[in-house]
Design a protein around this nucleic acid. Structure first.
Lengths: 150, 150
DNA sequence: ACTATAAGTGGCGCTTAGTGGGAAAAGGTG
DNA sequence: CACCTTTTCCCACTAAGCGCCACTTATAGT
């Protein structure tokens, strides 16, 4: 399980260091390969990154579902269609394909944010907006927080 | 269960001593690891700190809930996304990640305040305000206090 | 009141994580 | 087949993290 958020930078060759705490999780699985694809939350684009085993498990679940539901076709086109597998180099860096980098508008400064069994990569400014909006909306809904035991 | 509040200082490397009374609780659990994340009360930001077992239990509850409710997505981004696990060094100090330190505006002087199964870390001035505000509002609501048997 | 013990704070130095850049290898194109 | 671009592997630099030791203040016991 990934935990925490980390500010890293993409160098001018398109390489991104995976935070060592995330890499530890991958090493623990005995397979450092990851799969990344595009995603969007609240109208803001980011990348979803899965350990390869979690991704395969996810694919398997998808395969069980009705294949010709038009929504499922769209989902496959969108989410599965862009998926890209890669392995970190010996410094724990991954090379983000230009298409995905462009999609999520990743320039230099990015944030890697845990999301349970996967993590996400955001442009730093976009993440800031997502974060403060989440903070605001949550604060305005004390009942919801109360239900969670906070 | 944590109890009490303690004024400590963060050294210039970002390390913070956990009060020995809090540490005793962790030692009693047989696992001194803690998980901290950001939180906000009455518009003032602080850190929530959980013993690792309490945090895992909490995560488990979250995982049961509907994953794609937008409020839950926001909550995951905000609360879980910033969560950071760490262990105290042999003097019982933890290193607070820069991002969290900045978030809660923790400079040098902080207060660690118990909150049942977890505790919170506040900038000392912010805590002062939270405290007197709580005092004021309570005094103006004698019925509420009466219900509590005070 | 004095001593002994523990708690909190500070600082040094080694290690490792994160980043950058150059050279070799691979792949694609005219 | 030669040339150019992209990827991969390597080496190097910097700064942050972490273990260790030392000092000071608080607490407790005689």
């Amino acid at each position: 399980m990934f935990r925490g958020s980390f500010e890293h930078t993409i160098d001018n060759k398109g390489r991104l260091s995976i935070p060592s705490k995330f890499r530890d999780v991958l090493v623990g699985k005995g397979d450092e390969r990851i799969v990344m694809t595009n995603f969007v939350i609240d109208g803001k684009r980011c990348l979803d990154v899965y350990p390869v085993d979690a991704w395969l498990h996810f694919e398997e679940e998808i395969r069980r579902k009705p294949k010709f539901d038009p929504r499922m076709v769209r989902f496959q086109n969108y989410y599965l269609g862009s998926a890209c597998e890669c392995s970190p180099d010996d410094h724990g860096r991954i090379l983000i394909p230009p298409a995905l980098r462009k999609y999520a508008d990743l320039k230099r400064d990015v944030v890697l944010v845990s999301a349970l069994e996967k993590f996400r990569v955001w442009d730093r400014d976009a993440w800031k907006q997502i974060f403060v909006e989440a903070e605001d909306k949550l604060m305005q809904d004390p009942d919801f927080l109360g239900d969670l035991g906070l």
